[in-house]
């Protein structure tokens, strides 16, 4: 059966793409963030995952308001990145792991997660940048992927508790996949930030730090909040922590944090990076 080797959660701010394109990784503004990754690269070299399941949110590249699925899973042999309107360089296509995609779709719908399957899916910065941070080498991303997208654009947005349960179901489905594959689950987004309104620039460091700690000590901690309460505590885009929560929930039982970085600001955002490894 397939095995989850760990979970990596990280912010996905578009400005990271500009920093990578401009080779700014060692500038004082960027260094504290990029320094989180070399230890994770060494870990990836050691554990050698074959597949990445990437839990992310689309920002209006693949989905528009005409059709807005709450949960969707990619089932494409290849995923293309595309222009999102601000001309950051696009990354080469990503190779899908369709066997796992369909396994997840079958298992999850069976468990009453009525998700949308996508045999074509454009992937935006929230998907591409974390993979580029984790596999920074030239050319195509070296491991196969399965995108899992959660709606954070339009209310109603699924609750923290529901996203946690989705993560648990993904974890169980991966563990039931008849394969020798080693799977890493990536969650992207957050942490606290707000782009819109008079409250733009809102950041909540104490809440972010408590949330990050909770992923190790008490992973269901954030499920006590409604989405509206999360907006209050973390800003209107801070609710992207839902992706972290779902990714963490794929690991049954306890974890240890092999990497834990919090740095702000990047652009308008408090940025976090964690590498969580199952204890069992």
């Amino acid at each position: 059966m397939a095995k989850i080797v760990g979970s990596i959660v990280t912010s996905h701010v578009p400005a990271i793409g500009r920093a990578i394109a401009g080779n700014l990784q060692n500038e004082p503004y960027w260094k504290p963030f990029f320094d989180a990754f070399p230890p994770i690269h060494r870990w990836l070299d050691e554990v050698k995952p074959d597949v990445a399941v990437v839990v992310y949110n689309d920002h209006g590249l693949n989905f528009f308001l005409d059709k807005m699925p709450t949960f969707s899973v990619g089932a494409a042999p290849q995923y293309h990145n595309a222009d999102e309107g601000w001309g950051i360089p696009t990354l080469p296509p990503f190779t899908g792991e369709t066997e796992l995609s369909w396994h997840l779709i079958n298992q999850l719908v069976n468990k009453e997660f009525d998700l949308t399957s996508c045999q074509e899916m454009l992937v935006d910065h929230a998907f591409t940048l974390p993979l580029k941070l984790l596999w920074p080498q030239e050319g195509a991303c070296p491991i196969k992927v399965v995108p899992v997208c959660i709606n954070t654009v339009q209310f109603p947005i699924p609750s923290a508790s529901r996203c946690y349960k989705l993560g648990e179901a993904i974890g169980e489905a991966i563990s039931a996949w008849d394969s020798d594959a080693r799977v890493v689950v990536i969650g992207t987004g957050g942490l606290s930030h707000q782009l819109d309104g008079e409250r733009a620039g809102f950041i909540n460091k104490p809440f972010d730090l408590q949330f990050m700690q909770s992923l190790v000590d008490n992973p269901k901690w954030a499920t006590q909040y409604t989405v509206e309460q999360l907006v209050e505590h973390t800003g209107s885009q801070g609710i992207e922590l839902l992706m972290w929560l779902a990714a963490r929930a794929t690991i049954k039982g306890e974890v240890r944090a092999l990497q834990n970085t919090y740095h702000l600001p990047i652009s308008n955002t408090a940025a976090g990076v964690m590498l969580l490894e199952p204890l069992a």
Binding site: V153, F155, G197, R199, V231, S236
Partner: peptide, 8 residues
């Protein structure tokens, strides 16, 4: 939430 329009 002050200064915030939820996109509902």
């Amino acid at each position: 939430i002050p200064g915030t329009t939820l996109f509902d």
